[in-house]
């Protein structure tokens, strides 16, 4: 890459980001209700995916606990924002959802983040189902409720809250990646043993990162619940939300900060379109897309575009 292209890109990126942000903030003014709702669910997936990458992408620990943290956030809303009368304002509940999730993450992380490889993935996967089962048991035996209703919140409020969380999680990721803490995370992902022997407190770094990522997942769940309006343990702790962020991250590519966002946006858009156009076969086609992505796009769409670009530009840099 030569110098002019580099500086051009440097000034291009913040400009582009500003344009996108302005377009998003003003969306409820010029966009239709459908667009606002669509972008809200894109942002929801983007939040989960970016938070997932924040922890798993850098440390190399594949967490499947996303649905657990997301679900804890959803239940925070179900408990504190019932239709019979909200206990707290929406934003406070969003905060509660995030904090509750990160507390659980601190506990779970301290216990399990010494499990290596597939064990950590298995543990977090079982954790989601366990929390769901405990939720079902609690609702059936203790509170005698099948599900709970959450108050209706204005679509624009949901949208702006989701956008707010998105901006926060992006900024957090951006600053962590550039910080000393981010260097520690990457070192752990590269070689945990070596990282510990150069003075990095690997357990602490992993647990804190896990909790930060869980915070955003919980907050996202809390505001998402107001869109769902009806919540039960099956809805809240759906394992789908553990796997989607992983697939979206792979789809977009994890090499840089915007890959996961692009992956989430494309995937969520695809999901919404399939759901409205072909409701009968949308889930099946979705499954096929998932498998195809893993088979043919191991480096994500961005990787594919880069590959194509190299081929178009004569493959001069293909071997470096």
């Amino acid at each position: 890459m030569n110098i002019t292209a580099f500086t051009f890109k440097k000034s291009l990126v913040p400009g582009l980001l500003l344009v996108i942000l302005v377009a998003l903030v003003t969306l409820p003014i010029y966009g239709s209700l459908y667009n606002v709702i669509l972008v809200t669910s894109i942002l929801m997936y983007a939040n989960l995916t970016v938070s997932w990458v924040l922890f798993s992408g850098s440390t190399g620990y594949m967490s499947l606990a996303t649905a657990a943290f997301f679900g804890i956030g959803i239940y925070a809303s179900a408990l504190f924002l019932p239709t019979t009368g909200a206990v707290f304002p929406v934003l406070v509940v969003v905060l509660i959802g995030g904090l509750a999730s990160s507390l659980v993450a601190l506990g779970v992380g301290a216990l399990t983040l010494r499990l290596r490889g597939i064990y950590f993935a298995i543990f977090t996967f079982v954790l989601v189902v366990l929390i769901m089962e405990l939720g079902i048991w609690w609702e059936l035996s203790v509170s005698h409720l099948l599900g709970r209703y959450v108050i209706l919140v204005d679509n624009n409020v949901i949208f702006y809250t989701m956008l707010g969380i998105f901006v926060l999680v992006m900024l957090t990721t951006f600053f962590i990646r550039r910080s000393k803490f981010g260097l520690a995370m990457r070192s752990i992902g590269e070689n945990e043993e070596a990282a510990s022997h150069i003075g990095i407190n690997v357990t602490m770094v992993k647990v804190i990162t896990f909790a930060i990522s869980a915070f955003f997942m919980g907050a996202t769940g809390a505001i998402w619940a107001t869109k769902l309006t009806y919540v039960d343990p099956h809805v809240a702790f759906n394992v789908l939300f553990s796997f989607m962020p992983v697939l979206m991250a792979i789809f977009g590519g994890m090499g840089n900060i915007y890959g996961p966002v692009i992956g989430a946006a494309l995937f969520a858009y695809l999901q919404e379109t399939l759901q409205t156009e072909f409701p009968e076969i949308y889930m099946i086609s979705f499954g096929f897309i998932l498998v195809a992505v893993i088979l043919y796009l191991p480096n994500g769409v961005l990787g594919l575009i880069q590959k194509l670009w190299k081929r178009i530009s004569g493959g001069k840099r293909a071997h470096t």
């Binding site: 594949m62 490889g117 597939i118 993935a121 796997f243 992983v246 697939l247 792979i250 009968e280 076969i281 889930m283 099946i284 979705f286 499954g287 096929f288 897309i289 998932l290 498998v291 893993i294 088979l295 191991p298």
Partner: peptide, 24 residues
Amino acid sequence: AAYEGSSMLATFGFMFIIQNIALI
């Protein structure tokens, strides 16, 4: 590790496909 991760994710895709074929 990469194979174990990607094959697990692929089976998640299968879960979707099989469940929804059964649903139909």
